[in-house]
Every structure is written in C-alpha cells, then in structure tokens.
C-alpha cells in the first residue's frame, strides 16, 4: 500500500445519459510515469478531473496518496499539481506575475521551490515580462507546468499537456518530465499521441470510457502476439488499397511510411504478400516482419471493440 500513489476502483460517470467512464480501475505506483492513452472523447479529461477532485465520480472510489478525492478534496488539492487541458492561467498577466500569484496562493514563493522548477523556469525566464496570452503553445505548456510545480506536489496530473504542441516542444517537455521523475515525482498524464506511450513506464489504453489494457508499453505489445508484417513502397496508398483485397482479409493500416498488415487466423507469410503485390505490378516493395507498437495494439483493440459493438455507439 505504501507504494501506491493513485488507486481507482470502479469509477463510472455519465453526462446527460451519455456514459463517459465505465467501471475504471487502476493503480499508479509512486515515482512512475503513467500515461492514459486514448483519443478525444475517450473520457481522459473526465477521469483526470475526478482524480484532481474537480468533479465527483458517480460510482466507485479514487484515492490519491491514500486520500479519498471526495472527502479529503482539500488535502488532495494540496499534494497534486494538476494541469488542465485548456491553458488555464491568466493571459493578461505576465509569466512572472502568474508564477508569483500562484506561489502566494499556495503560501510559498518562487525562490523556496526554485530547485524543483528551475529546469522548466529557465526556459521561460527570457520571457518573464511577456503576457502569458502571447506565449507560443510550447511555452504556455511550460508555464502551466511551472505553476503546477510551485507548491512541490507529490504527484503531477497532466491532462493533454502535449496536444497541439509541435514535435520539438513535445520532446523538450518529455525531457523535463523525466527529470522530475528522477527527482521522485509521480507523474500521471493523458495523451492522444500514441507515440508518447513509449515514454511512459506504464500505460492504460482508454477507449470509449473503458480501459482496454494496462501495462508497460513493451508488455502490452508482447502480450498481443500480433503477427505484424510491414510493407514499404513508393506508392504506399495504392499498396494499401491492393492489400485490402487479400483473400484472408487481414487488417491493413497506413503507418507513416509503411503499411502494417496484421493477418487473421489463417496467417500470411512474407512471400504471400510479396507475390500478391508483384502480380499486381508493385515491384519496389520491401516486406518484412516487425514488432507491433502501441498504436498497432490500440488499433486492433479498438476495432475489436467496435466489431463487438461494445462501444455503445455503434457507428
């Protein structure tokens, strides 16, 4: 029990009769980076608002460092650093004024916790007299992180902190998170970027209000035993269209500069595919087996959910 940072049991929540979260249970260990991976509308924000005590769960219970998020919401707020999905600092105040204000609100000062936030703050310092509203997306995100760290929280709850932020800023952001983790901070975050899963210690794949799978990124990929064949070609889309006509009806998806083919029960060999494409005039293809990533797993799982009709929507 000592090592558990967050514990959730059977959390459910509905808005206007629409199920947003359905029986969510998980545990986050102290000091780990735990990611909730899922698209918009999966329920990530609702879940994080429940964890940060901003809304009440309908069913189930959640504890942050052993504190019930409903009864002990004041204590929970004191030990968590929550960053909302939307930039929620004062746009008309400067970077420095924002930090100073929130430091006072939490009864602390910038210098008192400077060691903790210095890595993040150093990036912001050149712009400390700029109004927060005029910062770029990446800088806003860093300012929001700074704000969340100002009271030396035990755990960070970051909701969609990297959404809409460019690839370079995202990399920097992750470097900062890993430094914080090295200092012993527990970090829970949500993201819709599947590639960020690899940067987490453990992830939960969230889809339509349910957790489809929890585990380490590698563990999830391995547990699948998916037989994945990767096809590269100059005419990628045409190749994808052809492969969809394969008689064994595998799942065929574009993945960046390649097509991923996951064969069905029958199984497909590299030669099957190569031969099939060659017959149709694709000469330049490279076909090889590959290790599935989180996105492959997510695709397979979510398609399974759709087929089973368990997503409740039926689209």
């Amino acid at each position: 029990m000592e090592d558990v940072a967050v514990k959730a049991e059977g959390i459910s929540k509905a808005y206007n009769g629409h199920r947003v979260l359905e029986n969510i249970s998980f545990q986050i260990e102290k000091g780990e980076v735990f990611g909730f991976i899922g698209p918009d509308g999966a329920g990530k924000t609702t879940l994080f608002r429940i964890l940060s005590s901003l809304i009440l769960p309908e069913k189930g219970e959640a504890f942050v460092y052993g504190l019930n998020v409903v009864d002990k919401y004041r204590d929970v707020r004191n030990i968590t650093g929550y960053v909302a999905e939307r930039f929620s600092l004062y746009r008309d105040l400067t970077v420095e004024e924002n930090i100073r204000f929130f430091a006072t609100v939490f009864g602390t000062t910038l210098s008192e916790n400077y060691d903790l936030i210095k890595d993040v703050y150093r990036n912001l310092e050149p712009f400390k007299n700029r109004r927060a509203g005029r910062l770029s997306g990446g800088m806003k995100q860093k300012l929001a992180l700074c704000r969340a760290l100002i009271h030396r929280p035990q755990i960070l709850l970051l909701d969609e902190s990297t959404t809409g932020v460019d690839a370079v800023s995202r990399r920097e952001f992750w470097e900062m998170l890993h430094k914080l983790k090295a200092g012993g901070m527990t970090i829970a975050l949500t993201t819709s970027y599947m590639d960020e899963a690899a940067k987490c210690d453990r992830v939960a794949l969230l889809y339509n209000g349910r957790i489809m799978k929890t585990g380490s990124p590698d563990g999830i990929a391995d547990s699948f035993g998916l037989d994945l064949i990767q096809v590269r070609s100059q005419r990628l889309y045409a190749v994808k269209k052809e492969l969809e006509k394969l008689p064994s009806a595998p799942s065929v998806s574009l993945f960046g500069d390649s097509v991923h083919v996951i064969s069905g029960e029958k199984g497909l060999s590299l030669e099957d595919i190569e031969g099939f494409l060659k017959k149709r005039g694709f000469e330049d293809t490279q076909v090889e087996r590959s290790r599935p990533g989180i996105e492959d797993c997510f695709l397979a799982l979510s398609r399974g959910y759709k087929k089973k009709g368990t997503d409740g929507e039926g689209y």
Binding site: S52, S53, L54, R74, R77, N78, T80, Y82, A84, R86, F87, S88, L89, Y90, R91, F102, V105, F106, G107, R147
Partner: peptide, 13 residues
C-alpha cells in the same frame, strides 16, 4: 470562461 477558475479551485484558496 477562460478556465482559470479550474486552477484556482485546485489551489488551497
């Protein structure tokens, strides 16, 4: 409206 209330709420104010 701007979402800053969310941040105030999670503070000890």
């Amino acid at each position: 409206e701007t979402g800053t209330m969310e941040t105030l709420l999670v503070s000890p104010l």
